[in-house]
């Protein structure tokens, strides 16, 4: 499988990453290599292997429904690039 530049541009847009033309070339090569590596799975005999969604053999990790101490809103907003009162503020997203 080979990755064309349009696909790279699309994925970059979905991830909100801006790429320079030289980066586009570099990345399409690198991603080709990565996908090529994953393609090796096709040549293995995996009949006995169950599909996994997690690398660790653990399950049902849960916490009890007990409240912890939350951050104060001052602390939560400390690093906000923009705020108004107790709110984070962002450029208006609907008109």
């Amino acid at each position: 499988m080979s990755i064309d530049k349009e696909t790279i541009k699309h994925v970059a847009h979905l991830a909100r990453i801006e790429l320079q033309p030289n980066e586009l070339d570099k990345l399409s090569g690198e991603l080709d290599e990565i996908l090529g590596f994953i393609d090796k799975l096709k040549y293995l005999n995996l009949e006995q292997v169950k599909p996994a969604s997690h690398i660790l053999p653990i399950n049902n990790v849960l916490r009890e429904d007990e409240p912890h101490v939350s951050l104060t809103s001052e602390k939560a907003l400390e690093n906000a690039p923009s705020k108004q009162g107790n709110f984070f503020s962002v450029p208006k997203i609907i008109e």
Binding site: Q84, G85, N86, F87, F88, S89, V90, P91, K92, I93
Partner: peptide
């Protein structure tokens, strides 16, 4: 949504 900004809680 307010004038010019959206506030997030």
């Amino acid at each position: 949504h307010e004038t010019g900004v959206s506030l997030v809680d």
